[in-house]
């Protein structure tokens, strides 16, 4: 018996030493050196208003500010060009060749954008929702990984490349709502689907709509990122998909069941830019 207590006690003490070892309070801020890289991840944790994100939850649908009930059947978006900044103003941009991530609603593992940045204490994280215009006009050789036009198959299955108008879909959000009519102004297939495929990087040679959104998160309030070589600092963001409907310019699904390649795409992008909220940082 005594032996057991002893075992438990020693286990607890080992654990607490372990915890203490993990505690970053006494970890001094390292000198900022560009070559001194350490891992950092940004977690894009999708939520829907006050509820968790679940695909096709027809038994308990979500409800937007217009009072429309809906479910989500598909969600994918590009996160790119990650940049970090310390309180002292030192900033570091991740090499563009390894700074493109496709966050997929159907694949939990895809929610982390994992990068390497110099050891340091970061108070700001900046990223792009979408694919920047430079990468959108690059030669085919540079379009690898999630940017490969062959990735993900066709548009019915997750493909994010617009062949007919050279560019990527930045944000692809589909679902169902009973408010959608069965005629041409809704979904003539009768599936009552809404589809938001938002792209538009600003045009090859002449300026067109630009829906690229650069988002900066201030980490001071909810926890700065202490990036060190021996651990994984994780900036945990909530991504509230309800903001698509209830953002700056609220709209109803019934009024705009399909937004792809038209001017209203800017309104949708203007709403989803506010989806991100820094919840906490795991250091």
């Amino acid at each position: 018996m005594k032996n057991t207590y002893f075992k438990i006690a020693s286990l607890l003490s080992v654990l607490s030493i372990g915890f203490a070892g993990c505690s970053k309070k006494d970890s001094p801020t390292p000198e900022f050196q560009e070559a001194n890289l350490a891992p950092l991840s940004i977690e894009f944790d999708n939520i829907v208003g006050a509820r968790t994100f679940t695909l096709n939850n027809t038994g308990s649908p979500y409800k937007n500010a217009a009072g429309e009930q809906f479910t989500i059947s598909f969600l994918q978006y590009f996160i790119s060009n990650i940049k970090v900044e310390t309180a002292a103003g030192n900033s570091y941009a991740v090499n563009p060749d390894s700074s493109y991530f496709l966050i997929k609603g159907a694949d939990k593992a895809s929610r982390f954008a994992k990068v390497h940045v110099p050891e340091g204490d970061y108070t700001k994280v900046t990223f792009t929702l979408g694919v920047d215009s430079l990468r959108s006009t690059m030669p085919i050789d540079k379009r690898t990984g999630v940017l490969d036009p062959a990735a993900g198959g066709d548009h019915e299955n997750g493909g994010m490349y617009w062949g007919w108008n050279n560019g990527y879909i930045f944000f692809k959000y589909e679902g169902n709502s009973n408010v959608i009519s069965d005629d041409a102004s809704g979904d003539p297939t009768g599936k009552k689907q809404f589809k938001y495929h938002i792209g538009f990087f600003g045009g090859y040679s002449v300026p067109t709509i630009n829906n690229i959104k650069v988002i900066t998160m201030d980490l001071n309030a909810a926890g700065i990122a202490k990036v060190r070589k021996d651990r994984q600092s994780n900036v945990h963001l909530f991504v509230d998909l309800m903001k698509v409907f209830n953002g700056k310019t609220p709209f109803s699904i019934v009024a705009h069941p399909n937004v792809m390649f038209n001017d209203f795409s800017s309104t949708v992008a203007g709403n989803y830019v506010d989806m991100f909220k820094h919840d906490h940082t795991e250091n």
Partner: peptide
């Protein structure tokens, strides 16, 4: 490329007829 533009790099053009 294309009658109505939209494709500006020959290396990306074949995607259009393949996927249309």
């Amino acid at each position: 490329f294309m009658w109505g533009g939209g494709v500006y790099d020959l290396d990306l053009q074949p995607i259009t007829p393949i996927t249309t």
